[in-house]
């Protein structure tokens, strides 16, 4: 994402990637975000991904589908995904719309998301430590 100001930011935090969406994205920007994120998972060998969608004005069928796609692709690349920051209004509209993100793990905010990933990923980290891997 070379645009200025950045629409999204993807930061590395230990074994996790934290992706924050800063503004409403249109469909093609959403697809680009998906690409960038899945690409980075491989490059940083990330174990977990947190997607912060607090700034999204809506999560419509396309947005929800993209999040599910990201989660599935990340899973196939060996990373666990948590979506955090879905606003209450957005959640209600999603339910009315019939959009589920049932297959995607969610958490209230960044803190909860990190806690979830620590639980989900930690056993593997412990295994790594035992086997002497970083």
């Amino acid at each position: 994402m070379n645009q200025d100001p950045a629409l999204v930011s993807i930061m590395r935090q230990g074994p996790y990637l934290i992706a924050s969406i800063h503004t409403a994205l249109d469909d093609s920007q959403m697809v680009r975000f998906q690409h960038d994120l899945v690409d980075k998972i491989g490059r940083h060998r990330s174990r977990g991904v947190i997607i912060d969608v607090a700034a999204l004005d809506v999560l419509d069928s396309f947005g929800s589908k993209t999040l599910r796609n990201i989660a599935e692709m990340a899973r196939l690349r060996g990373a666990q995904t948590v979506v955090v920051g879905i606003q209450p209004d957005v959640a209600l509209a999603m339910v009315l719309l019939g959009m589920g993100t049932v297959q995607v793990e969610t958490a209230l905010d960044l803190e909860e998301g990190l806690a979830y990933l620590d639980d989900a990923v930690a056993p593997r980290a412990a295994v790594d430590a035992r086997d002497g891997r970083p």
């Binding site: 999560l59 069928s61 396309f62 957005v90 209600l92």
Partner: peptide
């Protein structure tokens, strides 16, 4: 209400996408 604003925006998003 802010909930209904999001509801309206979501519906518009769906319908506008069909046009594109």
């Amino acid at each position: 209400s802010s909930t209904d604003l999001t509801v309206v925006a979501t519906a518009v998003s769906e319908i506008a996408r069909n046009i594109v």
